[in-house]
């Protein structure tokens, strides 16, 4: 049995009130579905005294809309479950619906939100543990300590980004809309994540992610998502990846490949431009797997053999690319 620390819970009724609550209470954290932050609070991972609970924002931030530009706009309070079932999401971004259906288990998908998944805290086998467990190890960079147990001598936390929606949205060039006391801004997802396990997004403490925007072009791209995990439910990814392809007849017009559950930032595989014009075939799929293998180095931050995860990555990439090509 693990109890929550002493907290004050603020329950704003609108986005404006929520942003004001975050501004007025420095160090306050956001509670949406609670599937990530509540266990982490029970583990004593945060020193926060205030929670800003967003349930009251459901009517404002729970929608799946097609903008007149063709852009798909998803409210940050949409549950993972409803996105996995949404006909519009399935038709326009099938890889996102697929990723949503593979997140955690049924109860967690109903509670968890899209905004929460994108802002999921990074995870590490050395930190997502009880306070007693962490104290016995002398703590770590992520919380209360000065050493990294994953990278010897490491000065920067490498806890893993474990969001399953992030690779899909990255591969599809999505962006997020945020609101803070300084106003609104739109951030391209490839600029949203930073390589720092302590806080792996560019969100300011008083900034709220309110919407995800997926460009109209996403619907024209062949796409697929894959997740590696030990059990078919509940588990966080041991690896996840998404590929998006634009085909011109049988040749590849453009390709992007995102891989995550490695370190703090989901990785977009670089230098794929020279593959544009390549035939969309098994050789192409094999080559993408080779490049992902070269650029991705799984770490011991996830308690599953990193050597095996690295070996299995090109296989997973090849299968996923072939599935996307269809």
């Amino acid at each position: 049995m693990m109890t929550l620390p002493d907290l004050t819970v603020l329950r704003p009724g609108s986005v404006a009130e929520a942003v004001e609550a975050l501004r007025a209470n420095p160090g306050a954290r956001v509670l949406a579905g609670g599937t990530d932050i509540v266990p982490n609070l029970k583990y004593g991972m945060y020193d926060t005294r205030h929670l800003v609970a967003l349930r009251g924002l459901s009517s404002e931030l729970r929608y799946v809309r097609e903008h007149q530009s063709g852009e798909l706009r998803l409210g940050a309070m949409c549950s993972i479950d409803e996105l996995g079932r949404s006909e519009l999401v399935k038709a326009r971004v099938p890889a996102l619906a697929d990723a949503c259906r593979q997140i955690a288990g049924p109860q967690l998908r109903r509670m968890g939100t899209l905004g929460g998944n994108l802002c999921l805290d990074t995870r590490c086998v050395y930190v997502n543990q009880s306070h007693f467990w962490r104290s016995a190890l002398g703590y770590c960079l992520k919380k209360d300590g000065t050493v990294c147990h994953v990278v010897a001598g490491g000065k920067r936390c490498v806890a893993a980004a474990s969001n399953d929606t992030a690779p899909v949205l990255l591969a599809l060039d999505a962006s997020v809309k945020t609101i803070s006391p300084r106003g609104e801004r739109t951030i391209a997802l490839h600029e949203f994540y930073v390589a720092d396990g302590l806080h792996n997004t560019v969100l300011a403490p008083d900034e709220l992610l309110t919407e995800v925007r997926i460009p109209a072009a996403a619907a024209r791209r062949r796409q697929a998502f894959a997740k590696l995990r030990m059990r078919a439910a509940i588990d966080f990814p041991a690896l996840n990846l998404a590929v998006a392809l634009e085909l011109d007849g049988h040749s590849v017009k453009s390709v992007s490949l995102a891989v995550s559950a490695l370190a703090a930032r989901p990785a977009l595989i670089k230098g794929l431009q020279d593959l544009h014009g390549h035939a969309a075939d098994a050789i192409f799929a094999e080559e993408l797997g080779r490049r992902a293998h070269k650029q991705c180095k799984p770490l011991t931050n996830i308690g599953i053999d990193p050597g095996w995860r690295r070996d299995v990555l090109p296989v997973l990439v090849r299968r996923t690319v072939l599935r996307a090509i269809g």
Binding site: V9, G34, T35, V38, P39, R110, M111
Partner: peptide, 16 residues
């Protein structure tokens, strides 16, 4: 309604 997990739901947040 739907199945949810009560151990990670705040009682305050369950009032509705």
């Amino acid at each position: 309604g739907e199945a949810i997990l009560s151990c990670i739901t705040l009682a305050q947040d369950a009032q509705d």
